[in-house]
Design a protein around this nucleic acid. Sequence first.
DNA 1: GTCTATACTTGGATAGAC
DNA 2: GTCTATCCAAGTATAGAC
Lengths: 218, 218
Amino acid sequence: MAKSGPASTLRSSGTEGAAGTRLALVDAAVETLKADGFAGASARAIAGRAGCNQGLVFYHFGSVANLLLAALDAVSAERLERYRATVEAAATPAALVDAAAAIFREDLEAGYVTVLVELIAGAAATPGLGEEVAARIEPWKRFARDALDAALAGSPLATMVPTDDVAHAVVALYLGLEMLSHLDGDRAPALALFDQARQVATLLQALGTLPPSGPVPS
Amino acid sequence: MAKSGPASTLRSSGTEGAAGTRLALVDAAVETLKADGFAGASARAIAGRAGCNQGLVFYHFGSVANLLLAALDAVSAERLERYRATVEAAATPAALVDAAAAIFREDLEAGYVTVLVELIAGAAATPGLGEEVAARIEPWKRFARDALDAALAGSPLATMVPTDDVAHAVVALYLGLEMLSHLDGDRAPALALFDQARQVATLLQALGTLPPSGPVPS
DNA sequence: GTCTATACTTGGATAGAC
DNA sequence: GTCTATCCAAGTATAGAC
């Protein structure tokens, strides 16, 4: 469905040309979603930012919605890889929170999650878009659950925490924090929250290593 | 700014007439935001649902954005009052979580938070809308903080928990959960989360009543 | 593959009849 | 206060020249 139009030949013959404008359009779609939201992401606005003609949106992607999904795919792939690499190095809950905070800070600065937020909110207006967006969120939920499982491995918490539900909450919290940060341009509350989360994670680690009801071993 | 147009005479002379269509438009705006999102909430779509002419949107509210803000005010007032009444009866963290779960369940069923989510996401497209929406979120953050303060009063947790930050997170989580629920039509993960939260709150209560390092008092 | 031109639709907003 | 009619801007999408 997302592969109609010209053959998807990244670096086919020339560096510019077909693949070049495709990429330019995807990039412009990302920027437009961040700056003007779903309601402002028209074919004209995106093509204008990409420096090409409006008709190319339909030639390459068939519809504006498909271009927007391609934009979501692009940032998702980039960010998911980035998250995976960083989180793999985190073995404890506290380290996991630190890793998450570092990259989420990047996301807030760059507004990557905004692309997802705008598409979720805009999905109500376009028939069929909701399912496509939902399918693209799944990898994130799975990633969050896997990261939680890995961080909790070996801890008694592993059997107590329903990582599926927590992963859902983490994704929801990311979306909500991004919305609020983007709305008033204040990233401080979100960042302060990660500090708190680290402390809680550290506390949980300490509790997890305690024998069931004894005092602290020294 | 929201009071231009005709005099705001609720039940002035006739039950219908001016105030009647005003209310019908506000109600239709809420329904349209829930069904079709910000991008689908045009003057024509809303007026059509309200059963009146499209021009009345501009006569009564001056612009579509103003009508949307009036819709947000309407649901905010209604919901905030509902929350306040229910939460006032909750004295402990566990009871607070239960109260929040009960009303959030209502919100999920009715889609009230969707109105807020759509306006936040749509704010990027309309200059000046962001500030208006942000101002309308403030009461919610204050409410959440006050509820947390009240529930933690007398507990040693009161000095340990930065209720300002947590309130921010709670609001963000609500927004995110609503988005995800609305997207795939599955409310189960959000509701399961409240069960978990209640258990954590109960645990925190128990920890809070413990002496610093002793065993459980029976 | 890309651009220009164009057909068609929808939306915001106003003027004037009733 | 409400409706009809209308203007104009913006959006989607397609056809055809280059």
